[in-house]
Design a protein around this nucleic acid. Structure first.
Lengths: 351, 351
DNA sequence: CTGAAAGCGCTAACAG
DNA sequence: CTGTTAGCGCTTTCAG
């Protein structure tokens, strides 16, 4: 029923191998025969069977992207970058949503390996245990991680310069004259988030003794930002500047502040992290640290592609620059002897 | 290098077919031998090769979702619903972003067919020409469309009750006492959008002669909403209630209104369509027509799965109910003799 | 430049 | 219940 290369071989009175060559390889076929074959293929409405090809060549021409949830705008953007890069290279992309479920993640992994995907980009939920890393390595499929895991150097990774981002946020707030600042973020021991917090702390330390900073940990989502803000307001009423681990948390902060009747930026300055689309639409537009999300997805598959081409190449750890996007959620503190240090919001490319 | 069923057959001193049966089918194998096989498989770290299986069975156990862009929160939600349903059934999902590019869409299609995906859910960009429908049908792969195409009955579809949604929005505004209302939407001839506009118009007509309504067409995005609002304000300054073709356009409306110094809902009432997450976070929270996005993705693959199971079943056209989510972007017009008709915002399940 | 033939790893009759 | 034997559709030596 489906037409195969045999059909078109018969049609043209040549051997299947000739058809195969005409269709894929570009060398070693008489130009005239090739034309004949191509023409017959078109006429018969031939659609090559890529799974058969996959079996024969051992490559499936598909990659997979394993993330927690596409509904998270951050990942949607990453996914799009990855998909475009894959498509451009003739690969397609299998999408897997693993939530924060380690079990589901590993289940997916096995299924994808069974399907012989040529490469895998993973945003490893809550890190990877050593045994999981080992399992991954054992499969022998090229992998790129979307976040830095301190316990693994053997697997390539792409990440934003989280430390720099946290630092920029802190420095900016302090540069505006805020003397009591806070960093509201997700769980400890979350690679990316930890780096952001560390960067923030560095900015505080660098500012000297008259600046006080706190770091609060909670859930890495809107609810978390909301809850931590309530806590913050109770514990540290003097705080006038807040930086968050991601934009979602910043939205929670906003909500809490609204409830308390505190205005942004009049009563509280706020800096987010990620620069999701929503950040610019909100009132007031949110000042935030931009992560090159699309580019991260893109870079991840590019590294993957390179790794597929040269399987014995060394792992590559790429960190992409971030940049503070100055909008309207922060204000300069009045009556402070103008400190200029760190008061600019320029692009600061990462390491 | 990779271990195959032959290896494990040799290991256990049985035939490959016995291994195959033990691994997949559940019938006709001695329980004891099966255990032996399973144990050996585990010990040898066997990973089945699904592409070989695919070649043999003719099914790849993967579905594809072809949309315009995952970065659109609407599609992200649909994708997640589809992915979950696919995963639950043991399929995985290939994601394709075709933008509004017809060429790219067809290119993707051919590639996916070549890969022998078992089914396809498509959000057909700008409709499908008759010849494209024909091509699709010719491939013989089960397809579910994510929007109603008036020119095609032969392909299954899942859609929201767009007409009802447009009607609800119009009725709601009118019920609040607005006598001059507008529907700001995307291009004419866009199946879903056209239905929404028609529903809106029905509400206007039903209200009688003292209610005036206009429908404005533009780009189906924020910019479009922005541009059309400027136009609207110039042309129809008396309008006090606006309904939009989707939430993105509503965001554009908000932006334009802000620039004109018009407050929502004080000076203008606004109803969106889609109920993307952002709608509830905005200030004021946007009243909008909810589409069951996740469920649509889910339903699409369920229909697909059924179609795969029974290839000769008739096409199914499923339309899911919508519902008006009343938030704070609309207000009752003062000094209007209370009309009660349509003033409720109850759930109104679709056809 | 082209044909013949041996697989890729698995499934699925068909015998036994 | 288990072994034998053909393939699935394509690629890829190896000859010619």
């Amino acid at each position: 029923m489906k037409v195969t290369i045999h059909d078109i071989a018969r049609e043209c009175g040549v051997n299947v191998s000739t058809v195969s060559r005409s269709l894929s390889g570009s060398y070693g076929v008489n130009d005239e025969t090739r034309q004949r074959v191509l023409e017959a293929a078109r006429r018969l409405n031939y659609v090559p069977n890529r799974v058969a090809r996959g079996l024969a060549t051992g490559r499936s021409q598909s990659l997979a992207l394993l993330i927690s949830d596409v509904r998270n705008p951050f990942f949607a953007e990453v996914a799009r970058g990855a998909e475009d890069a894959a498509f451009a290279a003739g690969y397609d992309l299998i999408l897997g949503n693993a939530d924060l479920d380690r079990e589901r993640q590993m289940r997916y992994l096995r299924s994808l390996v069974a399907k012989r995907v040529d490469g895998l980009v993973i945003n490893s939920v809550s890190g990877l245990s050593d045994s999981e890393v080992e399992e991954l390595l054992e499969y022998g499929v090229p992998v790129v991680l979307l976040n830095r895991l301190d316990n693994v150097q053997s697997i390539s990774s792409v990440s934003a310069d989280n430390f720099e981002g946290g630092y920029l946020a802190g420095q900016y707030l302090i540069g505006l004259g805020h003397r009591n600042v806070a960093h509201v973020t997700g769980p400890r021991q979350h690679g990316n988030l930890t780096e952001r917090a560390r960067g923030f702390v560095k900015a505080v330390h660098q500012a000297g003794g008259d600046v006080h900073g706190v770091v609060l940990h909670g859930d890495q989502n809107q609810q978390g930002g909301y809850a931590l803000t309530r806590k913050l307001l109770a514990l540290q009423p003097a705080v006038t500047g807040v930086s968050t681990g991601n934009d979602a948390m910043a939205f929670g902060v906003i909500r809490a502040l609204l409830e308390y009747g505190k205005a942004i930026p009049a009563d509280m300055s706020l800096v987010g992290f990620d620069n999701v689309e929503l950040a610019s639409i909100l009132q007031p537009p949110l000042t935030t640290v931009h992560q090159p999300k699309y580019e991260m997805g893109e870079a991840a598959v590019q590294i993957l592609l390179r790794q597929i081409a040269r399987p014995d190449s060394v792992p590559e750890h790429r960190v992409l620059g971030v940049q503070l996007i100055e909008r309207e959620s922060c204000k300069r503190v009045k009556g402070v002897r103008g400190r200029t240090r760190g008061s600019t919001a320029v692009t600061e490319p990462g390491a």
